[in-house]
């Protein structure tokens, strides 16, 4: 590790500790009652109990399963749609245009329809996750293809690449860096949509546990869930996807 990055991770730790301290002090001063703002120790206790009892594991498992299935489906649909829209002008004028409009609808707005169509079930959540996550992926692929320097395509064609080969050897590698960025964006959308959807359905999951905490007025449960959601989101985004992005840095 270089001195620079060692220093910046030091600052990060200090920042997080001071946030924690602030939270602790506010609780200690008893500005808000405990049932509105539980102390760090209470949340820590809830987390400890949840993990030691094993109560959180089914929730984590179910949520991960849902988000992975939904996300992967969305990525496949989104990438293929993006490729198709870039290839056919008619599609771009019709479907391509409406995607941008679709993107401005937040996932929660789909919940009533999803519940009506699929019932209070897992399928409703999957529907919302896929719907949310395929759009950034598709738009990203379209944009990336539009940005390929035309000369690269011509060079590829004059070196013997046509049709399928052109996709395999020129277009896909050329869009890879931007594709990974859109996968990252899609992931963030999928993760939010998952939690939003889970708030409304039965069974186990992070969203359901959070909602349960709300109905029992157990704010330390709510905050514990929020922390877990944040940590998983952070790990995926900043560790997994950043590594992937760095591996294509030499492209530009």
């Amino acid at each position: 590790m270089t001195e620079q990055s060692g220093k910046s991770s030091q600052t990060r730790v200090i920042f997080l500790l001071s946030l924690l301290l602030l939270w602790y002090v506010i609780c200690k001063l008893e500005i808000y009652p405990n049932y509105l703002l539980p102390s760090p120790a209470m949340v820590l206790n809830t987390l400890k109990r949840g993990f030691l009892d094993g109560a959180y594991f089914p929730a984590l498992f179910q949520s991960s399963k849902r988000v992975l299935i939904g996300y992967l489906t969305a990525v496949v649909i989104g990438s293929l749609l993006g490729l198709a829209i870039s290839r056919f002008k008619q599609l771009s004028n019709t479907v391509g245009e409406s995607l941008t409009a679709l993107q401005s609808i937040p996932s929660v707005a789909w919940v009533p329809l999803a519940l009506l169509w699929f019932g209070i079930s897992e399928s409703a959540v999957l529907f919302i996750v896929i719907l949310e996550a395929f759009i950034p992926c598709s738009l990203g692929v379209q944009n990336a293809i539009k940005n390929i320097p035309p000369k690269l395509i011509l060079a590829g064609r004059s070196l013997g690449c046509e049709s399928f080969d052109l996709y395999k050897r020129i277009i896909i590698p050329a869009i890879l860096p931007q594709l990974i960025s859109s996968l990252r964006l899609s992931w963030a959308f999928a993760w939010r949509a998952l939690i939003a959807g889970e708030l409304f359905i039965n069974g186990s999951g992070l969203g359901q546990t959070l909602e349960l905490g709300r109905s029992l007025s157990d704010m330390s449960e709510v905050i514990a869930m929020m922390l877990i959601i944040a940590v998983i989101g952070y790990v995926a985004d900043n560790i997994l996807f950043r590594k992937l992005e760095e591996s294509t840095n030499h492209y530009s």
Binding site: L152, G160, E162, R169, A174
Partner: peptide, 29 residues
Amino acid sequence: PDIKRAIVFQDYALFPWLNVIENVSFGLK
């Protein structure tokens, strides 16, 4: 287009995801 008529552009148009030798051997695939 055909490899019987190879073209070189003003702005090189090399494939940045490949290294030098992979670029040169691209058309031989």
